[in-house]
Nucleic acid binder design. Sequence first.
DNA 1: GATGAAACTTGTTATGA
DNA 2: TCATAACAAGTTTCATC
Lengths: 170, 170
Amino acid sequence: MREGSDDATRLAAAPPNDVRPLDEVDRALLAHLVADARVTNAALAEAVGIAPSTCLARVRSLRERGVIRGYHADVDPAAVGLPLQAMISVRLQSDARDRLGEFTGLVRRLPEVRDVYFVAGEDDYLLHVATAGTGALRDLVARLNAHRDVAGTVTSLIFDHLRPVPAPGS
Amino acid sequence: MREGSDDATRLAAAPPNDVRPLDEVDRALLAHLVADARVTNAALAEAVGIAPSTCLARVRSLRERGVIRGYHADVDPAAVGLPLQAMISVRLQSDARDRLGEFTGLVRRLPEVRDVYFVAGEDDYLLHVATAGTGALRDLVARLNAHRDVAGTVTSLIFDHLRPVPAPGS
DNA sequence: GATGAAACTTGTTATGA
DNA sequence: TCATAACAAGTTTCATC
């Protein structure tokens, strides 16, 4: 429950998140796992210069502490029938502030939505979406605009999306 | 070389990308691998109801056809000392059109940049960045603005970033 | 914490159906 | 595509430093 469900939760600070500083080995492990989440434990251990058993314990610790949030395959949207990507800026009604969680929950459940950025400034959300085509995109934008909390949207087509994955060296 | 390096490359259509339609099993495999890139082949095979050997061949084919572009660990930026995220809109000079590749190559090499969206409309790029703090963000924006091809930038702070990972069922 | 080696589990390939 | 089997390779535990 990110948004909190009672006053105590809403007003409490973010969880401590165990911010023990990471050492060089941890950073090397992360770099390798970001570049290739399926490296074997043995290969990873050798790459960073520690024993496999140590490597296993380190990676498990990173996962448990929340430093590593998960491992995901990166799928080409076009290959699964969603070739048209867009960034949709959403501005909410000024009286919708106490229903932010509701709208957030809604958009994150839309299958077209790949990223939800909750931003400061004139707009409240940036939604990175992937759709089947202009018709599907138009429908999606219409649905968003029809929501009672939405004051307006601006849609920009995305020609290309790059996610630079730093080489394990850095 | 995404940007092309000679006229023939620049004018050629995008690569065919082998758009054979995916069947139900392929989609199920993708859903599971997006949710958890480290599932074992045996578990994956059982989850989608095929033999492990078939599963291995299917997944390898998806990878080779470019449907699966890679497997990446998702690391919490705050945990690695980059707690301040922002979206930077970049508008290029109108005469910079024939140097798009150059600027793209530059920004994708900046360590702060996590996503590069090349968009249509008034702006040319949206850069999703993660920085150590306000000082680092200010420096980054200043460096971008100092580039000869940059006409202007607009920076919005990101309070939160969600990547909805659909459940393997969908 | 880190290690090396043993015990165990899993991935992988090949085969024939 | 599957099932089986055999081998190679990886993972995990544990006693020890």
